[in-house]
């Protein structure tokens, strides 16, 4: 067993990241603008119009409560969407083979694409944050925690997007999972409300939703309140990170959905 020299892996990693980032930049109208518009609408409708009637949530003005959730929601959707469409496109058009024949290890292929998803997630997250500032003040309580949760979550969903792309056989397959699994989990993941408003049963069920931990972890980092202890938020995020990373590696190493 002789591995690939580290230098080759690093150059390969840089090449993939550069390619992924320039893809995001090239089609910025599709990758960056839509979430900015959607999130502005959320702020106008839920924050400004309806939010006034809602009053406080978790001890905060509704807009301030919702802002971290919306940022997180756009990061999750963008990082997932980036990797699922980029990786599936590469597989569908065949140019994923360029990487599969090369001496790059599966980890480099995974991390390169994940980094692309993280960059797009952060870019979108930054824009949504700027949009937020038009509507409300944000006073960040624990910047390091917020940033760590944001990055790790973007990684988790980039990998989830990759897994989706690996199993997908047609374009429908990369639309189904986001619509039927990701969106419901996100909307039910505490973006818009605290679980203390829910009846016990639903509050208990929500604890099985990993997105709840990510949204609350991030909300803790920004405004300092959370339905979940920050320790368990990190624990859940890290468990999914490791789980998805190993799944990606297994799939790529075995060539499942890629080399059959």
């Amino acid at each position: 067993m002789s591995g690939v020299p580290l230098k080759i892996q690093l150059v390969g990693f840089y090449t993939i990241v550069r390619k992924e980032v320039s893809r995001v930049a090239r089609i910025w109208v599709q990758t960056i603008v839509p979430p900015a518009i959607t999130m502005s609408l959320y702020f106008v409708i839920f924050g400004n119009l309806i939010g006034r009637r809602i009053g406080d949530m978790g001890g905060f003005d509704y807009m301030q409560f919702m802002a971290p959730g919306l940022i997180m929601m756009s990061v999750i959707t963008s990082s997932y969407g980036n990797v699922v469409s980029s990786f599936f496109g590469a597989k569908f058009q065949g140019y994923l083979q360029e990487m599969l024949v090369s001496p790059l290890s599966g980890w480099v292929i995974i991390l390169g694409h994940v980094m692309g998803g993280v960059v797009r997630g952060l870019a979108v997250g930054a824009i949504v944050t700027v949009v937020t500032l038009f509507f409300t003040d944000v006073d960040v309580k624990h910047p390091l925690i917020a940033f760590a949760v944001l990055i790790l979550t973007a990684m988790v969903f980039s990998m989830a997007g990759m897994i989706n792309a690996i199993f997908a056989k047609k374009f429908d397959d990369i639309a189904i999972i986001p619509a039927f699994i990701l969106a419901p989990l996100t909307y039910l993941g505490g973006v818009f409300y605290t679980t203390s408003l829910l009846p016990d049963f639903w509050a208990g069920l929500s604890k099985f939703n990993p997105i709840l931990y990510m949204v609350n972890g991030f909300r803790y980092g920004i405004i300092g309140v959370s339905d979940i202890s920050i320790g368990s938020a990190f624990a859940v995020i890290l468990i999914f990170l490791v789980l998805f990373a190993l799944t990606c590696y297994y799939l790529i190493h075995r060539g499942i959905g890629l080399r059959d």
Binding site: V11, G12, Y14, I16, E98, S102, P103
Partner: peptide
Amino acid sequence: NQAGYYGI
């Protein structure tokens, strides 16, 4: 890019 994948 292909050169990059081979570590050049």
